[in-house]
């Protein structure tokens, strides 16, 4: 099975589990505070926001933050690819498109070329593919949203971003539908909340890459992440073994990392472990080992071992 379908299944499983929780009621919570009974892992942004807003140190929020940071150091932004419902909700926009438009978009891939004016910025880049052209700066609009979210929570005294967080709105929609049918709880909110969610992630296309402050926060913490990083086998990779141009891995990367030339794209901290690059590689040169061997190490270790023997 392709990783894409696996990821979709993982997200749907999360949605079903939490949706079933609303009906059965064991206290699973939502992704804002997932857990069991009175054990909850708070959303790191929510934990920071609520403490800044209420000017209190909340033990469960502090513990959640520590656990979340540890999880992000181990798994990077895997939450974004494997648990967050927003990319799945935003895929609904494809259902509004005619079928052939969807297919052609999938097929086009690696065609956008950089202009000659942009070329000087790409030092040492032999090809003029768009993947090289996407020089992403270290700070982008998401970081401003993150700063704004934390600042407004502190200034206005309530977790402002939680009002519009599409993850929260997704689970609010599920809850409201469950309550509408289960308890006859009728209100304009049942229409308003999904409408807001759709406005954010379906009609506005770039929530994850341009706005999401949670992704930004995870990306910042993820700078410390060294595990599950895509590693390229240089003896197999078309670019290194045959000197040909490829760049497929960089083209498919949703967050703009160039695994072949990491200095060009987004930082590794942004990696969502979606495995799109692993799947896209035409020669299966990319793997995602738990701990990646560093570039120089394998040969060195080998020499030492041989010497020892």
């Amino acid at each position: 099975m392709k990783t894409k379908s696996l990821r979709l299944l993982a997200v749907l499983a999360v949605l079903v589990l939490i949706g079933a929780g609303f009906v059965v009621g064991p206290g699973v919570g939502t992704l804002s505070a997932i857990g069991w009974g009175d054990i909850s892992l708070l959303c790191p942004l929510g934990a920071l926001g609520t403490m800044l807003a209420s000017k209190m140190v909340i033990p469960r929020a502090v513990i959640s933050l520590v656990v979340a940071v540890a999880a992000i150091i181990i798994l990077g932004r895997a939450f974004c690819a494997w648990a967050c419902p927003v990319p799945v909700v935003s895929k609904l926009r494809d259902t509004f498109k005619p079928k052939n438009a969807r297919e052609s978009k999938a097929a086009c891939g690696h065609t956008k070329r950089v202009s000659s004016g942009e070329k000087p910025g790409l030092s040492g880049c032999s090809s003029d593919c768009a993947s090289c052209g996407q020089t992403r700066s270290k700070v982008d609009s998401r970081h401003f949203v993150l700063g704004g979210a934390l600042l407004s929570a502190a200034v206005f005294g309530f977790p402002v971003f939680c009002l519009v967080c599409p993850i929260g709105l997704t689970f609010a929609t599920i809850l409201l539908v469950v309550r509408l049918f289960g308890h006859g709880d009728m209100s304009w909110t049942v229409i308003l909340i999904p409408a807001l969610l759709f406005a954010e992630v379906v009609f506005f296309r770039k929530w994850c890459t341009r706005i999401c402050p949670l992704g930004a926060l995870m990306g910042l913490i993820g700078k410390a992440n060294k595990t599950f990083r895509p590693a390229i086998d240089d003896t197999v990779c078309i670019e290194t073994s045959k000197g040909a141009q490829c760049g497929k891995c960089a083209t498919v990367c949703e967050v703009g990392i160039d695994p072949r030339h990491p200095e060009r794209g987004a930082s590794w901290g942004e990696c969502t472990k979606c495995r799109d690059c692993v799947d896209a590689c035409p020669v299966q040169a990319i793997t995602m080992p738990i701990v990646a061997p560093s570039a120089a190490k394998p040969s060195g270790v080998l020499v030492k071992e041989e010497a020892g023997e």
Binding site: F22, A33, L42, G46, A53, P159, C162, G168, A172
Partner: peptide
């Protein structure tokens, strides 16, 4: 209002 993150728990 200052602490609720609308987690729905």
């Amino acid at each position: 209002l200052s602490a609720c993150i609308r987690c729905q728990k």
